[in-house]
């Protein structure tokens, strides 16, 4: 089923015209850009946010609500994948060389994940990168034939996948109930709250990514014995 040739001609032309106008628009915007509006405010307030790394403070404090919803998006994707059916059958077990390589790489990935989580407070890194490392570890395990990529049984998977969003949300609601306001961290403990959120988010992201790679609902133990 090939698209008609007229379309093949028309679309690039249209896109070219669109590109030129967009480029013009971008140039126009950049020329008017004084570069010191929101960025300055944000950088100035970073010390008050409980994290010293600007991106982390934006992500988890200034725009924490976005991150909360984003975790919900991840959860949605996972639940959507689960709704479609059971996971694919596992990969065959690896050869000897590969197995030893996996044995090396997986712990390294997990340790790196921990490291990235920890440095996130003051340097590049944080929940997403750390979660991605966990995810990579799980993917590696899956490729090496582990049927669940190192994940626990379904109820635990559910708990872990929802944990990040849940802790984030409950923290927001709890702070609101205590009189502080939704997602408003008290100055003194902000750092710790962010760390808790990041840690749980890391777990959730990692678990979600692995489960997404498995591509379906966790199989019950009986089916898994194959």
């Amino acid at each position: 089923m090939r698209p008609p040739s007229l379309l093949c001609l028309l679309v690039p032309l249209l896109l070219l015209a669109l590109g030129l106008s967009l480029g013009w628009a971008l140039g126009d915007g950049l020329k008017g850009y004084s570069g010191e509006r929101l960025a300055e405010v944000a950088l100035e307030l970073v010390p008050e946010s409980g994290a010293t790394h600007p991106v982390t403070s934006v992500l988890l404090n200034f725009r924490g609500y976005d991150t909360l919803l984003e975790l919900a998006v991840l959860l949605t994707a996972l639940l959507g994948i689960w709704s479609l059916g059971p996971a694919a059958p596992p990969y065959p077990p690896p050869g000897l060389v590969l197995a030893s390589l996996v044995g090396w790489v997986v712990p390294l990935l997990i340790i790196t994940g921990g490291y990235l989580l920890w440095v996130g407070a003051y340097a590049p890194g944080g929940a997403f990168q750390a979660g991605a490392m966990l995810g990579a570890a799980g993917v590696t395990l899956t490729l090496a034939g582990h049927p669940t990529g190192g994940l626990p049984a379904e109820p635990w998977q559910r708990l872990l996948a929802a944990l990040g969003t849940l802790v984030f949300l409950l923290m927001g609601l709890g702070l609101m109930a205590l009189g502080s306001g939704f997602l408003i961290y008290p100055k003194g403990i902000a750092k710790w709250l962010i760390l808790i959120i990041e840690a749980t988010a890391t777990l959730s992201i990692g678990v979600t990514l692995i489960a997404a790679f498995l591509g379906g609902r966790p199989m019950s133990l009986r089916n898994r014995s194959r």
């Binding site: 200034f62 725009r63 976005d66």
Partner: peptide
């Protein structure tokens, strides 16, 4: 209107 996170609006959501 509410400013989430307690930050003034262009910074907070």
């Amino acid at each position: 209107t509410s400013e989430l996170g307690g930050w003034k609006i262009p910074l907070g959501i």
